[in-house]
Amino acid sequence: MNSMTSRVRLIQPSDGEELRKFYERFALNFVGIAKREARQFKHMARKRDNLRWVALNGEGKIIGYILAAYAKGRRTGRITEIIVDPKYDFETVAGALVDKVHDVFLEKCAAQIRAGGVQNPDNSKIFRRLGFWHIKTDGVFMYAITDAAQFLSEITPILVKRLKTLSDWNGQLRVSCENHQISFKKEGETVQSSSLINDQLNCDIFLKASGLIRVLLGSIDVQSALLEGLITVKTDLPKVKMNELLLTIFPKKQFLTFDYW
């Protein structure tokens, strides 16, 4: 991991496209992050309040950014988004960005600074160092599947990609949710998916809608979901292999979102 960071500067409208690509690369490590367009970043960069900064490496490439806002009438500063390239040390890069914004808030005579919402667990290191209180709220993000058949077809490319990474298993697998199912046939690096039911299954996975949501969005790990009965599995595979298969298709991901509605 590269811990070196050279400097920070204000976001410029010309950073829009690079920031979007950077944001999408960052999003790959999380679930829940909303898609953005370059124009949204360009729009953010137009505001002249010294509250949007990027961190650059020695070559001048963007390795992190911070977005914040200040309500003058309320003397309240709000840090809305901190993103750091996973290849770099989060604490160093984010620390430099937060320090910068923190100083701007102090110059503006802020009475309070807030950073709220769904938090990246990495943020705690930075905010605690600066003397922030971490307050657990009763706020919660809820999710529902309104059309299980379509949802299964939407997540099929995800499951195909993950199955391809499982090197030492070939066979047939079925994932069912709310009476809808998707079957997968893996042969070497080729994974085929089909909604047709296949009798020669090696592994048949049944998920309750809430189970599918929670394992996919990282709210529970697959082993806990099995224990809670959110997932049931019928298989001829040894338990170790079955667990490996389940962990491959439903790895625990961190849920993170910056956009609220």
Partner: peptide, 24 residues
């Protein structure tokens, strides 16, 4: 209606002027 909890939310707060923050 079929919704389930995914994640709870939290916030970080730093108070620089306590009396003002309370009045606000």
């Amino acid at each position: 209606n079929g919704f389930c909890d995914v994640t709870t939310m939290s916030s970080y707060v730093k108070i620089l002027d306590f009396a003002y923050a309370f009045r606000l």
